[in-house]
Simulated assay, not measured.
Amino acid sequence: MSNTKILVENGSAELFETLRETNVGILKLRTADCASLSSVILYTLKKLTKLILWGTYSGRCSLNLPETFQFISLQEVECSYDWLCSLLIALSSLEHYVKCEMYNVVLQPREYSCEYDSQTHVFDFRSEMLALDMSHMPIFVKSGSVEMFELLRDTNIGILALRNADFTSSASKILYTLKKLTKLYLWGIYSERCTLQLPETLQFIPLLKVECSSEWLCSLLIALFSLDHSVKC
């Protein structure tokens, strides 16, 4: 069943139990309730490689992913800061190449997403995330926000792909803090001067579908030359 795609619009605990220990390869879950119900059997799906999510999520991410996992796509997701942090921690803990694609991710304001009472210890997910090696986990952003990129500040991401110029602009304030970033993929329309502050670790910058001014391209090349080591453009 590794070539089988299963889309669940509205499921039950019993439905997911029928999938336990099967060889399903791709699972699509349309709501957070479906994701929650599936979480108790996900780790038993020994050939699961792709998980595609929709829905609204808060609290800690409880997805227990199998070792075979390779790709997660957040299609239309509204989530808390802690949920996204703990998802990235779970992906990083797999310790192999796992692609994380963010199509349309909206972060809830911190005051709304915090559901703990004042007497409860709030675990600092971000501190845990900063301690992890995320260099094997490429992040593809197709729709993001300044808040989402701030969440990635100072992390050990190795590969970042930005699908339009707005995301590149939002990411530009944190790029230099990504101390293990080696590859930056760009799409979009660019004008005026390139404002990317690139980290010293950068080795490769593909311009995939880019329309730009001569000033932007010149200033990008100047920024790359200033790194003083081999960088493939």
Rank of each mutant, 00 (worst) to 15 (best):
S12G: 05
E14S: 15
T18C: 15
E21W: 08
V24K: 12
V24R: 04
L27G: 03
L27M: 05
L27H: 05
L29G: 01
A35V: 05
L37V: 10
S39H: 02
S39F: 02
V40N: 15
L42Y: 03
Y43G: 08
L51V: 02
I52F: 14
S62C: 09
L65W: 04
P66N: 05
E67Q: 14
T68P: 05
T68Y: 04
F69I: 00
S73G: 12
S73H: 12
L74A: 02
E76I: 03
L88M: 07
A90P: 13
L91S: 04
K99D: 12
E101G: 06
L107M: 12
Q108Y: 11
P109Q: 07
S113C: 14
Q119A: 14
T120L: 06
M129Y: 11
M129F: 15
A131D: 15
H136W: 07
M137S: 06
P138A: 11
G144D: 06
V146I: 10
L152N: 02
D154S: 13
T155C: 03
I157M: 08
G158I: 00
L162S: 01
D166R: 09
S169V: 07
I174V: 12
K179I: 05
T182V: 13
L184Y: 06
Y185E: 09
L186S: 04
W187N: 01
G188H: 06
Q197A: 12
E200K: 15
T201E: 14
T201M: 08
L202R: 04
Q203I: 01
I205M: 01
L208D: 10
V210I: 08
V210A: 12
S213A: 05
S213E: 09
C218D: 09
S219Q: 07
L220C: 10
I222K: 13
L224G: 02
F225S: 08
L227A: 05
H229C: 09
